[in-house]
Nucleic acid binder design. Structure first.
Length: 430
RNA sequence: UCCGGUAUAGCUCAGUUGGUUAGAGCAGUGGACUGUUAAUCCACGUGUCCCUGGUUCGAGUCCAGGUACCGGAGCCA
């Protein structure tokens, strides 16, 4: 007899099968019982009839608890009343472990409680769906870069320097020296782009900012392509095409999960491109028309960002920011020295910045000036400056925050559900 | 760091103007039920009311300080 996955149940109509899983829910009505079983691949309703399995088995069935691990043996039958349109008429079952007092009941719980039980919450339908969408997004990111001849080159997590000098870094001890957990792999990505032409790195980043909002994690995953012989316009195109590809793949392959999450797929279908491109200077004008009272040169706050994003159905690309509010490595616009060739992509529906990128400064003298201006330690960047000494070329790249993309595509109100084990200011466990 | 909010049963919450023995639903246990979808119905239990101090005849309730957590700002993906 075959052990099958619930997701392939429709291939086994009227066959006897085995399913390895866990009790999702159990209820009964006299001499007939209904056991919803999950196996990690899906849910199925198993019908337990006293007269079929015998008094003794039925008595022990009545004692089955939520999340007990069992193997169910029975016949697959079509059943319109059941979830998934198929059910199993139980012949017998084997109990592996009887779960006692499972903390997550089918009733409501607070988020704090659920986060404290995150290791168990992962079994719930919604959390399962979110992480499967995350999986699809990760896969489509890797496929996209693979199809376009990018090479994955992993960048280190221990670093000696502060790449952007602005964000707070986690400090650690490294054989008697000070080291930091990487907040970006970008500088290493630039080295790799000079070796491979098209590079990307994808891994965890760490930021010790004391941010307590629904958009922040202290540990999150970022994908960062870096492309040689690429200007800012091409950079925007890569980011746009990546986002469109991700959304298409999720709609195509994870529609069940989006339904479980009650995500409006029509909203996602509007993400077709080309995305609107608005300069920072134009944004200032738009914002002041809406009574925001922001001066040229000031950085956008969260309300400003949300207002700009809400003007459009699809993500919007904001570009050419004042150089003073952006990182030292961004190239200045030859047509306007006051701005840099940087761009941010803002997701619709208030999900905020999901991409940040730029064309990189190639002139070593300007870079050294900028490093001094930011009061960074020049010796830490000597290897980075080498990239401008030996065959410097125009190049660009961007970083995309995985969890914010997951939150946006799933339509979630909080980023902590987008990663299996969230790390926030107040949570290091489980 | 700043601003706002919350803290009562295993979980989710109610608790009046300060009043005597602190409540509900769910979960759990036992029972009834052959078509349930968070099944329903009957019976049974549970408390450091976050901590410390204060006001009061009397504090879960009012006041002060503290702690923890939540949301927002800043910062950012």
């Amino acid at each position: 007899m075959k052990i099958i996955k619930i997701k392939e149940i429709n291939k086994f109509e009227n066959k006897l099968v085995r399913i390895n899983g866990w009790v999702y829910n159990s209820r009964r009505s006299g001499k007939i019982g209904f056991l919803t079983v999950r196996d990690g691949f899906g849910l199925i309703q198993c019908v337990v009839v006293k007269d079929d399995i015998g008094d003794e088995s039925f008595e022990s069935f009545k004692r089955l608890t939520q999340e007990s691990s069992i193997t169910v043996i029975g016949k697959v039958v079509k059943n319109d009343r059941a979830i998934g349109k198929y059910g199993i008429l139980v012949d017998s079952y084997e109990l592996h472990h009887l779960s006692q007092d499972y903390p997550i009941t089918p009733k409501e719980h607070g988020t704090e409680y659920l986060m404290a039980n995150r290791h168990l919450w992962l079994r719930s339908k919604r959390q399962h769906a979110i992480l499967r969408v995350r999986h699809e997004i990760v896969k489509s990111i890797r496929d996209f870069f693979d199809m376009n001849d990018f090479t994955l080159v992993d960048t280190p997590i221990f670093t000696p320097n502060a790449a952007e000098g602005t964000s707070t870094l986690f400090r650690t001890e490294y054989f008697g020296k000070e080291a930091f957990l990487a907040q970006t792999g970008q500088l290493y990505g630039e080295a790799s782009a000079m070796a491979f032409g098209r590079h990307y790195n994808f891994g965890p980043c760490f930021r010790a900012e004391k941010s307590k909002t629904r958009r922040h994690l202290t540990e999150f995953w970022m994908v960062e392509p870096e492309i040689a012989y690429c200007d800012i316009e091409e950079d925007m195109m890569w980011a746009e095409n990546l986002l469109i590809y991700i959304v298409q793949q999720v709609i195509k392959n994870k529609s069940n999960e989006l339904n479980i999450l009650e995500r409006d797929i029509d909203v996602l279908k509007k993400v077709a491109g080309p995305f609107p491109r608005v300069s920072y200077t134009d944004c200032i004008e738009i914002l002041n028309k809406a009574d925001f009272n922001i001066k040229w040169g000031e950085d956008f706050g969260s309300p400003e960002e949300t207002y700009i994003a809400n003007q459009y159905d699809s993500p919007v690309i904001v570009h050419r920011f004042p150089s003073k509010i952006k990182a030292f490595y961004m190239k200045r616009d030859p047509e306007n020295e006051k701005v840099v060739l940087g761009m941010d992509i803002l997701a619709p529906e208030g999900y905020g910045e999901i991409v940040g990128g730029s064309e990189r400064e190639t002139n070593i003298d300007i870079l050294i000036d900028r490093i001094d201006e930011e009061k960074l330690n020049k010796s830490d960047y000597d290897w980075f400056l080498d990239l401008r000494r030996y065959g410097s070329v125009p190049h660009s790249g961007f970083g995309m925050g995985l969890e914010r993309v997951v939150a946006w595509i799933c339509g979630l109100s909080h980023i902590r559900e987008t990663i299996p084990f969230a790390r926030t200011m107040s949570r290091l466990n489980p």
